[in-house]
Computed example of a mutant assay.
Amino acid sequence: MALAVVFDLDGTLIDSAPDVRAALNRLLAEEGRPQLTLPQVQELVGEGARPLIERAWAATGESAAADAVSGLIERYLGHYRAHPADHTHIYDGVVALLEGLRAQGALLGICTNKPSGMTGIVLDALDLTRHFRAVVGGDHPRRKPDGDHILETLRRMDAKPEDAVYVGDSITDVQAARHAGIPVVAVDWGYARMPVEKLRADRLISHFRDLTAAIGELRP
Rank of each mutant, 00 (worst) to 15 (best):
D19R: 12
R21H: 04
R21V: 04
A22G: 11
A22F: 12
A22H: 14
A22S: 15
L24W: 10
N25V: 14
L27S: 02
L28W: 02
E30Q: 11
E31T: 06
P34L: 06
T37H: 02
L38Q: 03
L38W: 01
L44N: 04
G46V: 04
E47F: 06
G48Q: 09
R50F: 12
P51Y: 01
L52A: 07
L52N: 07
L52W: 09
E54Q: 09
W57A: 04
A58N: 10
A59H: 01
E62C: 11
S63K: 13
A64N: 02
A65L: 13
A65M: 10
A66F: 08
A66I: 10
D67H: 11
D67E: 15
A68C: 03
V69D: 00
V69Q: 02
V69P: 04
S70V: 10
G71F: 04
L72V: 07
R75V: 11
G78E: 13
P84L: 03
A85I: 11
D86R: 02
H87E: 15
T88Q: 01
H89L: 00
I90M: 08
Y91N: 05
V94I: 00
V95L: 07
V95H: 04
A96P: 00
E99I: 09
E99Q: 15
G100W: 08
L101N: 13
L101P: 11
R102Y: 06
G105A: 12
A106G: 10
L107A: 15
G109W: 10
G109R: 11
T112K: 02
N113A: 09
N113V: 09
P115C: 06
P115W: 04
S116G: 12
S116K: 00
G117Q: 14
I121C: 00
I121F: 00
D124H: 13
D124T: 15
L126T: 06
L126C: 03
